[in-house]
Amino acid sequence: MSLSFINFGETDKLSTKKYRFSPIIYGLTQISFYLLVIFIVILHLAPFLWQVICSLKNVDEIYSLPLKYIPSKISLSAYRDLISNPLFLRYLLNSILISLSTTFFCLLLASLSGYALSRLSLRFKTFFQFLLLIACLFPQIIFLVPLYELMANLKLINKPLALVLPYVTFSLPLAVWVMTGFFQTIPKEIEEQAIIDGFSRLKILTKIILPLSRPALATCAILIFIGPFAWNEFLFSLSFMIKDTSRTVPVGIALLSGASMYEMPWNKICAACVLTTLPLIIFVIIFQKRIIEGLTRGALK
């Protein structure tokens, strides 16, 4: 009863309409809700915050006991080292280029395929779905050597395309799934009406369906960009991008080392982690707003 103001799965405001009890209880439930929210945020952010804290410490402070949660001296040396390293900036640029290309092409292909699968009956539909399925059922490691051979034969080693091709391919299953599921929620009447009005299939797709799909496209974009086959991917990037200047960020972080072979300069690793997440956070913030935008426009109407 006291939870009645929380509507499971409903989007309207915290409704106080049904609420008949004293303001104190209302206040308490509000507070407990916010406490829960704060707890959730801490859970998700804590390890990352620890990274931020460690990135600001001096190297020796990281290994001192007892643990210091607040660095006695904030040192930006780790960041300075990283930013002044032109190679590291190059890694960032490569990652951005490759991830954006992957997201874009994958969205493109996924929308086209998703639409075809949800609306049209095709001869090769089952085979295509089967292909999608097996593309994601294998552990990534096993594609490594055959794909390396392929990229070497196509002379794509060290070129961004060597990564974009597999990334798009392996991101397709999820993207197609999301887009197809979404397309199926669009009432068929809209298209039937458009056909009667004389629109061609292509026009329907581009002028009607795609604009309606903004929220799904946004969700898809997030899932692809921060998924296992774009920004964060490590294994293929390590193997196909051999030249320093072609590398991406996760590999770049792995290359960070200290004065000796075994040393792990924790403050630099943490700083790198923080720096490399910033573009991602920005990306997510932008697209996160779009989801809400798309919905408030009554996308389903």
């Binding site: 929380i6 509507n7 799965g9 409903e10 989007t11 309207d12 405001k13 915290l14 809700f33 916010y34 829960l36 929210v37 959730i40 945020v41 998700h44 952010l45 390890p47 990352f48 997030i222 921060i226 998924g227 296992p228 920004w231 964060n232 490590f234 960020v249 996760p250 972080i253 792995a254 690793i269 790198a272 982690c273 490399t276 997440t277 991602l280 956070i281 997510v284 913030i285 996160q288 707003k289």
Partner: peptide, 26 residues
């Protein structure tokens, strides 16, 4: 919880997406 409208929801949503965004190996 994220479905509800509340103050700072945008920030909370972004925080919740964060773990997925960080590179696994790192």
């Amino acid at each position: 919880i994220l479905q509800q409208r509340f103050f700072t929801r945008g920030f909370v949503r972004t925080s919740v997406f964060l773990p997925w965004a960080l590179p696994t190996a790192v």
